[in-house]
Design a protein around this nucleic acid. Sequence first.
DNA 1: CGATTCTAGTCAGGAGCCTTGCCTGGAACG
DNA 2: CGTTCCAGGCAAGGCTCCTGACTAGAATCG
Lengths: 400, 400
Amino acid sequence: MDSAKPSLELVRSVTDEHVLRTLMRHRRLTRAELASEIGISKPTAGESVRRLTERGLLADTGERTPGGRGRGRVGSYYALDPGVGAALAVTIAAEGVVAERLDVYGDTVARAARQIDRPARPDQIAAALLAVATELRDAAGPRDAAGPRDATGPRGATNSRDGGPRDAEPRGDDGQTVRVAVVSAADPVDRASGRLVHLPDSPFLVGDLDPVAVLAPFVDGAVVVDNDVNWAALAERDSVGADGLRDFAYLYLGEGLGCAIVNDGEIRRGRTGLTGEIAHLITIGPGGRATRFIELFGELGLRHAGTTAIDVERLLTTADRAVLGAAVGGVIAALIALADPQEVVIGGSWGPALLDDIRSAATWAPRDVTVRAAGLTETPVLAGVRAAALNSLRRAIVGR
Amino acid sequence: MDSAKPSLELVRSVTDEHVLRTLMRHRRLTRAELASEIGISKPTAGESVRRLTERGLLADTGERTPGGRGRGRVGSYYALDPGVGAALAVTIAAEGVVAERLDVYGDTVARAARQIDRPARPDQIAAALLAVATELRDAAGPRDAAGPRDATGPRGATNSRDGGPRDAEPRGDDGQTVRVAVVSAADPVDRASGRLVHLPDSPFLVGDLDPVAVLAPFVDGAVVVDNDVNWAALAERDSVGADGLRDFAYLYLGEGLGCAIVNDGEIRRGRTGLTGEIAHLITIGPGGRATRFIELFGELGLRHAGTTAIDVERLLTTADRAVLGAAVGGVIAALIALADPQEVVIGGSWGPALLDDIRSAATWAPRDVTVRAAGLTETPVLAGVRAAALNSLRRAIVGR
DNA sequence: CGATTCTAGTCAGGAGCCTTGCCTGGAACG
DNA sequence: CGTTCCAGGCAAGGCTCCTGACTAGAATCG
């Protein structure tokens, strides 16, 4: 498919990638351990380590503990150099902003959060975002007390491959450059720009905000923004295990309405990133009328006065569950018709509570599909963002 | 990502793949031309040709015409050996069955067709499928009059990598083994088995049929079956040009109802392959009632008596176009909500005729999306099947 | 018609990446 | 204190690629 001309170099790059990925899994290994783990010869492993150390990606940890099973000569342990950088995982919702800095191993090395009183204004949220980003930049990571690192190759000098603004140095005190940021926002996200978009009549919780502009000064690399439901769906997929759930829909029913569609194992975002914006989907309204999903909540008086959000408390206490169940059933029918999922997963603050009502209305569905509540309930969005951030960081390191 | 251990062999396979793909584009080249076309050295090109000839994939054409610009020594031209095989492109519809045999360059080397009187019974269609497959197997290809080929290496002896039934020899008289078959059927197709499935109340034109079982004896490789609308959408995508249309929906409105969804440049098939089965989608029915799309046609008396097909002629002459337009508009609203297409392409025997009515009803849509008639009108399904068959054949040849 | 020109293909030499096999150094075991 | 065991380095060899020089043979020129 794509040409790879300088050929022998290709083999070397495969080897180096193998070494890097193996050290991402095992944290620290001797060259002999690397060789047997990867399945290459010791000289090859040694050469690769030498190259990668020279590029500043690997470092001798200084440890000289005996290799593995007690006997034998002590080995030199190598690990990824802290200079490979870190990732930012950020969630933005109306309740507040949470940001974490992750290292290559997926560990959270720093965390910052800001709560915001409801109703939140967009400028408050932007300020909170800026605050957590600044706090994480200034916070020293907990590790890096391992001892002096000798290999101080040309680090950071030749690494500006994204042309971002370099005024504010995008690194914490510990030298952990932030190479990638992955952001969740509780509103629809434009795929190309990363800006939040306000769809007419839809809940708009976070409000007009450009996370890329706010975070770019803190990141020496890409800033990825997507809808919170998409990230939650990714976490749900990963929680099931590899290949377990390649085609499903994640229906989020809370203050906002959202839906993620996973097809062939990947989130499907569509042209503008607005796949799964179900607010305007036509479904079964009161009296069997064809009604837009979002209009139902207006008709039933279930939206917060003055805002676009759904009043979850009132919904759970006073609403006609049969009517709601029928409407959600219509949405599920559309999902089955157009996305053909293996399962429909229901999440959000009120969706799982109405699961029975939804199920009993699913007779509209053209065929039987499992409808179940989300398995991850703790912080599914943050889990998905973390996984994506870690993935992006590792890809950025491995791919040159 | 995926491990590739025996490493230097990887470089060689890249080179060989390059040579094969280049000869698929240029039909015949000397070793020197190959080298400069690919950007490798002459000795490397020569070695690769030697290897591939030994494996029976390449053959000296016997031509000794001077190389290119008149002067100089004459070169030996090499081309893909006819033994690399051919592909079958098959379309199955209620009107009849068409099958073509394609060579590796995408040329149609043989064609067979059977028309069937309406209404067609499944056994008639199965018989027609068997008939065209047999006819194509027995027909000699038009080429292969080029002269004696000397390099008669071990061909076909070590090539049975699919374990298919070898009773009926899956090759025509010219030795062109059929390595892959791509089949279109005018009904929903189960992704895993390739069988046609009957969804309750939906049009079922071809009827219960197992194309894989019928065609397997004729094919020394995979038989791929999919819905005709999906293939038409692929042809539409390719007709626009690379990267032009990565996210769109193809709405087929004819005797049957179908919809293909292309996302990130690929057809999305879903868990069972029933993505886009819009018959049971809830839309706007007469009087604003929430109605399943397919039920509308029953209510309006637009289905053929005794069958499940839609009566297109009556629809075009007598039906209430505003009602139909509104219903289709509701379907488009669902497509926009759940698939976020760049465009919605309308095809089929009656869809384009109602384009204005559909457009004027698209006020239900949450945002403006281009709605247009299909650009390919000739034989879009066959075009898509051909492209897929050619692709599969080439992949089968290159990938070992 | 012979000399010249031009190109396809081959050969020799060398570089890079990998492997196997052997040797050395040094810690732990008994 | 000798034995055992393992990390790491070295040497030799194989495979793939490349460059540059050479050979072979047809078309063109004078």
